[in-house]
């Protein structure tokens, strides 16, 4: 009886950072992610945006002047890496935000209202899940000029929500049976309030973790688009770098190795940081793991 009485606040508001810091890998992930985001913000402010081509020094290996060598047209690889994270991360965050908002809104309403709303929304997820995303994006890419990062984020985000929507729906189905929800319902607080003020904040941890997972997925999808050349190759970012390095045959040129590996490594580092971060967040939000 007592154990059932043990208070298990869904989120311990105080000491979130403290508890996160107890997981070493989580803290490391947090630092990595912070550093990379900081870099993508700071780099464009302190560096010249356009890196002038210098064909005389094409395909140079690492040297004092060019720490990671140069590309096919003699541009500095390190500078490109430092400047090329912005779009990737912005689109990743934006797409994840779009996905999460749609998934939470639709998933919780479907679960709370049930009935025809639920069946209709489930039908919709079925439809979305059967469409091959990458093909659709390719088709859309040929119709629209996907140069705007905002448009990219919207597009990526509005196709990846169904999976998360279903798991949010499952969560809400159990949460809505909780007694405090029933109490809110019998006080006639109104559907929107019960769903978005009483229920959804109780899943904050779960949502945050899934948001981060969505960021990693969006980054992969975006990079995939660039690598396959399905998105316009204007500007410079990690995805475009990989595509260029590949098409100009960097792997066949010994001194071109850094050119292709540097963006791959940058992307891998971001993803690693994010995954490590979710680990420690899981620990923070899961009371049973956090207790020991």
């Amino acid at each position: 009886m007592t154990s059932a009485l043990a208070p298990t606040p869904a989120i311990q508001r105080r000491g979130l950072l403290y508890r996160m810091s107890r997981s070493k890998s989580g803290m490391a992930g947090f630092v990595i992610v912070l550093l990379i985001i900081g870099m993508t913000i700071v780099a464009p402010l302190v560096m010249n945006h356009t890196i002038a081509p210098d064909p005389a020094h094409a395909w140079e290996g690492p040297s004092g002047g060019h720490l990671l060598g140069t590309d096919n047209s003699g541009r500095d690889v390190l500078k490109q890496v430092l400047l090329g994270g912005g779009t990737v991360i912005f689109v990743g965050l934006g797409a994840a935000a779009v996905t999460t908002v749609i998934a939470v809104a639709l998933g919780s309403l479907a679960a709370y209202l049930r009935g025809w709303v639920d069946s209709a929304l489930l039908q919709l997820t079925d439809i979305f899940m059967t469409i091959p995303q990458i093909v659709l994006l390719a088709v859309l890419g040929s119709f629209f000029q996907l140069t705007s990062p905002i448009l990219l984020a919207l597009l990526l985000g509005s196709f990846s929500w169904p999976v998360l929507m279903r798991s949010i729906r499952a969560q809400v189905l159990t949460l809505k049976e909780r007694e405090f929800v029933e109490a809110a319902r019998s006080l006639d607080l109104g559907t929107l309030r019960v769903v978005f003020v009483e229920i959804v904040p109780n899943m904050a941890g779960y949502i945050l973790i899934n948001f981060i997972i969505a960021v990693t997925n969006a980054i992969y999808a975006l990079v995939g688009l660039y690598v396959l050349g399905l998105a316009p190759l204007s500007g410079a970012n990690w995805g475009i770098m990989i595509h260029q390095a590949w098409t100009y045959g960097a792997i066949y040129i010994a001194s071109g190795t850094p050119y292709i590996l540097a963006p791959v490594f940058a992307i891998a580092l971001v993803q690693l940081g994010l995954v490590m971060l979710t680990r420690s967040l899981e620990e923070v939000f899961n009371p049973r793991l956090a207790e020991g």
Binding site: L5, P9, R178, E179, F180, A183, N202
Partner: peptide
């Protein structure tokens, strides 16, 4: 007509 639940640990929203 209002209902008071058995378990005071479950009937209040923990984050409010």
């Amino acid at each position: 007509v209002q209902f008071v639940h058995q378990d005071p640990y479950a009937s209040l929203n923990p984050i409010r």
